[in-house]
């Protein structure tokens, strides 16, 4: 998952200090893996360099931790593009998908569209696998089946999440 895009997304609701960003990230996404300060600063400086964020102001007293960041229009476009791009279907991508959905909700975007886009992508992969399986030998079939079952599990998760979007929206808004 992309920490840069996530932090950018968090900035969309308004300028924040680096420390606030870390806290917000940990709260929403970093359940078992809190961000290091260093990770935040290096990411932010990379984003600054690419013109996706700008420094909104510096609190008196100096020190890097007091810098307040704001997202630029280029930054917003970047988040948009990232959210709209389906992830390559692979195992264990729920955390990325989850992040995308929550961010979409936080930024009042259509989260179901993200899910549907993803589901179409998943199904496209499944079709390819199914096709390969039909033409292949037993080994191919077994390998494809393994992938298919995982994809199916993802798809089921997508469906379930789609069905629970309203609840999730409430939970995120808290």
């Amino acid at each position: 998952m992309s920490i840069g895009h996530t932090l950018l997304g968090l900035l969309e609701s308004g300028p924040r200090h680096g420390y606030d960003l870390k806290r917000a990230f940990d709260e929403k996404f970093g359940h078992d893996r809190p961000l290091h300060y260093g990770q935040v600063y290096s990411t932010m400086s990379r984003l600054l360099k690419h013109g996706l964020v700008e420094v909104d102001g510096i609190e008196a007293g100096g020190g890097p931790e007091r810098k307040r960041y704001a997202i630029t229009d280029a930054g917003i476009t970047d988040v948009q593009r990232w959210l709209a791009t389906p992830e390559k279907p692979e195992e264990y991508l729920q955390s990325t998908l989850y992040t995308k959905v929550v961010l979409a909700l936080l930024t009042h975007r259509d989260a179901s569209l993200i899910l549907d886009t993803q589901r179409a992508e998943h199904l496209r992969s499944m079709r390819i696998l199914t096709d390969r399986k039909r033409k292949g030998d037993l080994a191919d079939q077994l390998i494809c089946d393994h992938a298919l079952f995982h994809l199916e599990a993802d798809l089921r998760w997508l469906e379930l999440t789609a069905a629970r979007l309203d609840k999730l929206r409430e939970a995120v808004a808290k």
């Binding site: 199904l123 499944m126 079709r127 199914t130």
Partner: peptide, 11 residues
């Protein structure tokens, strides 16, 4: 069932 739908050309 997604795995059944995977036999389709389009969904």
């Amino acid at each position: 069932e997604p795995r059944v739908a995977a036999y389709s050309d389009r969904e």
